[in-house]
Structures are given as structure tokens and as C-alpha cells.
């Protein structure tokens, strides 16, 4: 399956990266990693790109890593439609001090607007 993973550098997105790479190796998915400019994340896009590349290398998976600039949600949805991805994968949300799951703004936008199935990794 042609899978598009969107990560912005939040903890849940990095967890989604590990799990999606693992899954892609098992299932033989054709994976593209899109690094997004997430204003809610403390990590820079360059740091996230380096991290993604090293995770892919460790797993021995050949996958594109791209930096998407501009509005993260709409760029990701646009790319998914334009290049015929079958699934979009995102982090499953951060936890509040109380333990409540909070979806980021990117996840909300993509869930409502993506033309294909969206998976939230938990």
C-alpha cells in the first residue's frame, strides 16, 4: 500500500514514525515521510528530517523523506490526493496532565479533509 506519514516533531508523531516504519517493513508498504512545520512542536524540521532518516536507515527501509512547507494540514491533504496515496498516517494525539487525549490542529484538519483513509497511531 502507498502510505503517507505526516510528522511535525511532537512526541506522538515520533511514536507514529517508529510504528509506521515497523509496519511498512512487515507489510511491504511503499512509505513516504512528510515532515511538516508544526508550530506546536519544539523540534525543528531539520531535526525531524535527520531523525526520520536515521529511523529509516536503522530499519533498512527505503522511503522518501520530504519537507512540506506552508500550512501543514492542507499541504498534506493536497499531496495525498495529488500523488495517489491510499492512506495517511498521523500521531494519535498528546495527553493532557489529566490523561485526556488531545488531537492537534493538523490531525483535526486532515481527518476532516483527507480524500483517503486516515490512521491515527496510538
Amino acid at each position: 500500500m502507498k502510505v503517507l506519514l505526516g510528522i511535525g516533531g511532537s512526541d506522538d508523531s515520533l511514536d507514529a514514525l517508529e510504528r509506521t516504519v515497523e509496519r511498512a517493513v512487515e507489510a511491504g508498504d511503499e512509505l513516504t515521510v512528510a515532515v511538516l512545520d508544526n508550530p506546536e512542536s519544539d523540534r525543528s524540521a531539520d531535526e525531524v528530517i535527520d531523525h526520520a532518516s536515521s529511523v529509516l536507515e536503522d530499519a533498512g527501509l527505503d522511503a522518501d523523506v520530504r519537507h512540506l512547507t506552508g500550512d501543514p494540514g492542507s499541504e498534506l491533504v493536497e499531496l495525498a490526493g495529488r500523488e495517489g496515496f491510499e492512506q495517511v498516517v498521523l500521531g494519535g494525539g498528546e495527553r493532557s496532565p489529566m490523561g485526556k487525549i488531545r488531537l492537534g490542529h493538523i490531525a483535526e484538519f486532515v481527518l476532516l479533509n483527507a480524500p483517503v483513509t486516515v490512521t491515527l497511531v496510538r
Binding site: 495527553r95 493532557s96 489529566m98 490523561g99 485526556k100 487525549i101 488531545r102
Partner: peptide
């Protein structure tokens, strides 16, 4: 009646 993932 669970809300936002809690109670687990």
C-alpha cells in the same frame, strides 16, 4: 460515557 480517552 468515557470522554477523551479517560477513564481508561
Amino acid at each position: 460515557m468515557r470522554a477523551q480517552g479517560i477513564p481508561p
